[in-house]
């Protein structure tokens, strides 16, 4: 049973550092969702706590929601790639694989098939979490082909509409006309239709959202994971603003997310 690797050897329980003992006692491993989950955040030790992302970053907020929504974290492996997301994801109490830039969905194809060989009767959830650049630009071919091949795992794209980690260059998901680094005269093509591409490629469950409502965000993630267990690939395209590159003051980050959801449309 996979929970064993999370239980300290009895003799060493009093020799482990505080944060590991708390993780075992108050963490979400092996607990029912009603006891933990997004509704009870704050009453148990979350999988992600300290991380080196910028203050006010909407992506780190969403990553906390991802890890709070995991159905069974003790059997979950996350795969990320270059970009801001991996800064927080690598600090989570869940195994994290980091390959080369953009190859997360190819790696996920490999490891999900390996898990089905080794654990035919057990459910191992694999989630790839990458930015818009990693998923739709450099990793486009691997993302699409993993979907065409019906690989069974969840893909979450943290769309901050910019290459944030490298200092604010234009990305495929930046809006048309956006003046950013490497698009000095404004981007001359529109936002790539990620949702339509996912549906065309054969995803069984696709969501596009701005995570302003925490329960709706968590429900989408859990549905995506459940559907990916035996139906096929699932995709979540979520708006997570880069308040640094788009210079959104931290207190306004939530208002900006609300606005992207409700009012402003791309010019």
């Amino acid at each position: 049973m996979s929970l064993n690797y999370m239980i300290p050897a009895s003799k060493f329980k009093r020799y482990l550092p505080k944060d590991y003992v708390e993780l075992v006692d108050y963490g979400p491993f092996g607990k029912k969702y009603s006891e933990v989950g997004v509704k009870n955040m704050g009453t148990y030790k979350e999988l992600v706590e300290e991380h080196p992302m910028c203050s006010g970053c909407w992506m780190s907020y969403y990553i906390k929601i991802i890890f709070a929504s995991l159905p069974n974290p003790e059997d979950t492996v996350t795969i990320g790639t270059a970009g801001c997301g991996r800064l927080a994801i690598s600090q989570a109490a869940v195994p994290f694989i980091y390959g080369n830039y953009g190859d997360q969905n190819a790696m996920a194809s490999g490891i999900t098939r390996a898990f089905r060989l080794r654990f035919p009767d057990r459910q191992k959830d694999v989630i790839t979490i990458a930015g818009d650049g990693g998923m739709m630009d450099i990793g486009f071919s691997m993302t699409m082909h993993a979907w065409f091949r019906r690989e069974k795992f969840t893909t979450i794209m943290l769309d901050n509409e910019v290459y944030g980690n490298t200092g604010g260059q234009e990305s495929g998901m930046s809006v048309e006309g956006a003046v950013l680094k490497m698009s000095p005269k404004g981007k001359n093509f529109g936002k790539m239709p990620a949702m339509q591409l996912a549906i065309t490629a054969g995803c069984v469950y696709v969501v596009k959202m701005s995570p302003t409502n925490i329960n709706k965000a968590s429900k989408a993630i859990r549905r995506a994971i459940f559907a990916a267990r035996n139906l096929g690939p699932t995709f979540i395209h979520v708006y997570t603003s880069c308040n640094i590159e788009y210079s959104i003051p931290t207190p306004d980050v939530f208002r900006d997310a609300k606005e992207k959801e409700k009012r402003s449309f791309c010019i």
């Binding site: 694989i97 190819a106 790696m107 490999g110 390996a114």
Partner: peptide
């Protein structure tokens, strides 16, 4: 990359 993913499994 798929080889790298599977070998880790």
């Amino acid at each position: 990359s798929a080889i790298a993913g599977a070998a880790r499994g």
